[in-house]
Simulated scan of single mutants.
Amino acid sequence: MTNKVALVTGASSGIGEATARELQSLGFTVYGAARRTDRLQKLSADGIRALAMDVTDDVSMQAGIERIIAETGRIDVLVNNAGYGSYGALEDVDIDEGRRQFEVNVFGAIRLAQLALPHMRKQRSGTIVNITSMGGRLHTPLGGWYHGTKFALEALSDCLRLEVAPFGIDVVVVEPGGIATEWGGIAATHLEETSGTGAYKAQADAVAKSLRSEANVNRNSPPSVIADAIGKGVTARRPRTRYAVGFGAKPLIAARGLLTDRAFDSLISRATGLPRT
């Protein structure tokens, strides 16, 4: 394990920070990536290598992979964790913001996989972990662009898993449920800025309230549960293809599979407090 190398994106806080620390504890040499390395000082102080990387900037992604290979000669694990939730009614969200949501959550992840794969194929080993969400298996109101990216990353991960299996490379999808990070508050604020006035105001108010709900926040799981699942996935001889972990993930994904579309719509509408028509 002392020779194995991992790259974790979005490592400055939350799931990314917890994952970087978990992989280091398992013996990996860990590179933690974020747009601003000043936010990685706590990780650097503990021996995790800080890497400036913007997953919407191809030059910075290439430079990051090149540095890892130059310093260590290999890359064994890529954890695509960088992402955010762009909430707002589809009618309201500027199309450029929709494109940016895909650039960060989807194209950045796949581009990093493209850059890492030649080295993994040469080694005949490696694991790519794509952090999607339970939101990649189900839908909620006013989160269309976010869910779209996560559904897309789920499908791309399935295709990639088949393509790279002959080279000894695994692709693992991790589907977090409710996690105690900054994500919900940021998504709620963005939602209010986008759809807090106009035709979708009542829905936006309800969903923002749900995202910030103290009851929900108190039930959310710590980021460490995701880090633990990633640790299991990258050290398993034959990892599962999917790990659904964190508050609500397994029951909600199961409900989506069992209920009709209309029944699930009704369930989610009640859960988010949407006004009745």
Rank of each mutant, 00 (worst) to 15 (best):
D54W: 11
Y87T: 00
F102W: 07
F28P: 07
A227C: 03
K232V: 10
V164G: 06
A52N: 02
Y200N: 08
T241M: 15
G231I: 07
R36L: 02
A20D: 10
V106P: 06
R35F: 12
T140I: 06
E175D: 11
V8L: 10
G108W: 03
N218L: 09
K150D: 00
D170N: 15
N216I: 06
A227G: 02
G85C: 07
S44K: 14
S12K: 08
A113F: 04
E91V: 14
L274V: 06
M61E: 11
A187F: 05
A255D: 01
G16W: 08
D57Y: 10
D38T: 07
D76E: 03
A271I: 14
A249C: 05
L258C: 05
Y87C: 13
D205V: 09
G47R: 14
Y31W: 14
A254Y: 01
T272N: 13
A215S: 12
P118Q: 14
F28L: 04
A20R: 04
Q101T: 14
T260R: 13
R121T: 11
G126Q: 10
Y87F: 15
K250M: 06
Q114C: 02
G246P: 12
A229F: 01
S25E: 12
L23E: 11
S133G: 03
A254N: 02
G248W: 08
A152K: 01
Q24F: 02
G32Q: 05
H119D: 00
G233W: 12
I179N: 03
E66A: 15
T235F: 10
R219N: 13
S86K: 04
R212Q: 11
L117W: 05
A244D: 07
T2H: 10
I15N: 09
S12G: 10
G83I: 14
P275N: 03
V5G: 00
P166A: 13
T197E: 15
A215F: 08
R256N: 15
T149P: 04
A187S: 12
L7S: 07
N216P: 00
I95V: 15
L138I: 07
G108H: 05
T277C: 03
G177P: 08
R21F: 08
K122A: 08
D92K: 11
S269R: 13
A202K: 11
R111V: 04
A152H: 01
E17C: 03
G168L: 05
V164Y: 09
E17Q: 14
E214T: 00
K42E: 15
P251Y: 01
R121A: 12
I169C: 03
L258K: 00
A113E: 09
L112T: 03
I169V: 14
V217Q: 13
F107A: 03
M120H: 03
A50T: 02
Q101I: 12
S25V: 09
S195Q: 12
I169N: 01
G14F: 05
W183L: 15
V30C: 05
R67P: 02
A180P: 00
I48H: 01
F247D: 15
V217H: 08
I226N: 06
I268M: 15
R238F: 07
E91Q: 15
M53Q: 14
